[in-house]
Nucleic acid binder design. Structure first.
Lengths: 259, 259
DNA sequence: TTAATAAGTTCCGATAATCGGAACACAGGG
DNA sequence: CCCTGTGTTCCGATTATCGGAACTTATTAA
């Protein structure tokens, strides 16, 4: 076991990463327990993080939460590569045509992160906030993302993941999921029917670069009452078309990005 | 000189903070030069940051940029304390009533960070993107923010800052700025007339908590052609009212924030 | 094509920062 | 009032970290 790279930095980043939508505020002991760090170090790391504005301290609870500087730097990600800008009009069109909520997501390890959401018009609103994480194995976006990777890469991600069932429909076996990925590859989009949340369906397709590398995933989310599985096929084709447009739009602005 | 707290973490965070709207992509040597770090360490830190998803690498330029995980964690900041949610309807009303672009900002050190922006309807669009930094001494939001602090705190921030002139109207002397803060305190809002950008004006007011602590700053931005200085006084009173509403809205949801 | 410059990574041993246990301070509940 | 849980600071031993230099790729110039 060797010290490959900055170990303390790794620890600090694990601390920062331990904040989530579900648990946006954490105390020193809480974090130390979860990451198996000493309270001493955890406290020191949090001091450093606070000093640089990456965490704040809730004055009333005295617990920590992500800070302004984390927000500032993080928001730069959206603007990188013009992904968000390129996707915005396409998502708007998707919403206009289908009435359902449209999402832009990105793969990170074994989870999908929502980068942008555009609310649908329908009376039924099932919206996931920007920044939220979804497991790669339960979501349409996850399947779409994995389907762009080499099968062995996808498989190793799935094997390293927990594959917890969120509904009776969730696929929790690697083999089943690999079959699903093949299907997604074949038809160009992924359809998720209540595998993540009961009563909710979603279709997704990935935008890729010239080398086939994953750039982002577009999706639509809606209640199962709002569209049949047959109708979902048509929605899937819509999303596929949208993702292709996004791929093209991103390729167009590639050439030289000034300087 | 003693090691008060995690020094390497501090270095890593300085690297992360060196990304900005103006320079969203940086190389190893570039960063090392600017922060006076060795290339060796800089490279190692960036590896750690990359491993945890806090930076990405542009596959074509091989330069680094903020990563998805930075975005995910950063976006949690917005949801903390419900600041953004509470501000949204108020900002919408400001835009509806004035037609100008409305901003929500937060103080971080000697700079203001834009948390949210809502575009005005007017033909003239002067919009600043979310995440952008503005110097505290040149902006209406900065003056509004500082006016809520104790004068000596405000003064020490100003003295530590660069006070670079951005236009001929920019106040660059601490004394002048302190006078300005007193005026802002007295009238409840700050008016910025081309001190940040030629041809652009802005009015701002701060929302504060029960202890008078700064929670956020609301502002309106517009071209100087769109409203006279007299009309700006009325706009300032509007923003003041909006900020009071925001303070009240935040106080309302304080009691117990579930668990 | 080759040479020359610059960027990025890895190696190395000396050094200094980091680590965790324990002691301390503080808050809230029983 | 004690007790439990939290957060911070101290300390010396240890170990991860540091930067110079060597090495590998890119990039540019000739």
């Amino acid at each position: 076991m060797e010290a490959e790279f900055s170990l303390s930095t790794s620890r600090a980043l694990r601390i920062l990463s331990s904040f989530s939508e579900d648990r946006p505020e954490l105390g020193v002991s809480e974090i130390a327990r979860e990451l198996s760090l000493s309270k001493a170090s955890t406290s020191r790391f949090l001091q450093a993080l606070e000093m640089h504005g990456f965490v704040d301290r809730n004055p009333v609870t005295r617990k920590f939460r992500p800070g302004v500087e984390a927000f500032r730097v993080g928001s730069l990600f959206l603007r990188a590569g013009g992904l968000n800008e390129a996707a915005a009009p396409i998502m708007a069109r998707l919403v206009a045509e289908t009435g359902f909520t449209s999402y832009l997501s990105s793969l990170r390890g074994d989870t999908m992160v929502i980068l942008a959401a555009l609310e649908g018009r329908g009376p039924i609103k099932y919206s996931i906030p920007v920044g939220e994480k979804l497991p790669v194995h339960t979501s349409a976006t996850g399947h779409a993302a994995l389907s762009t990777l080499k099968p062995d890469q996808a498989e190793s991600i799935l094997r390293a993941s927990q594959l917890v069932a969120r509904t009776p429909f969730t696929l929790t076996e690697v083999d089943r999921l690999m079959e699903r990925l093949a299907q997604v590859r074949a038809q160009g989009f992924s359809l998720n029917w209540q595998e993540h949340t009961a009563g909710v369906a979603s279709v997704a397709a990935a935008a890729v670069g010239t080398e086939g590398e994953l750039l982002g995933v577009l999706s639509l989310g809606y209640a199962t009452m709002q569209a049949s599985q047959e109708e979902s096929q048509a929605l899937g084709r819509e999303v596929r078309k949208a993702a292709d447009e996004l791929s093209a739009a991103l390729k167009a602005r590639r050439p030289h990005e000034h300087d």
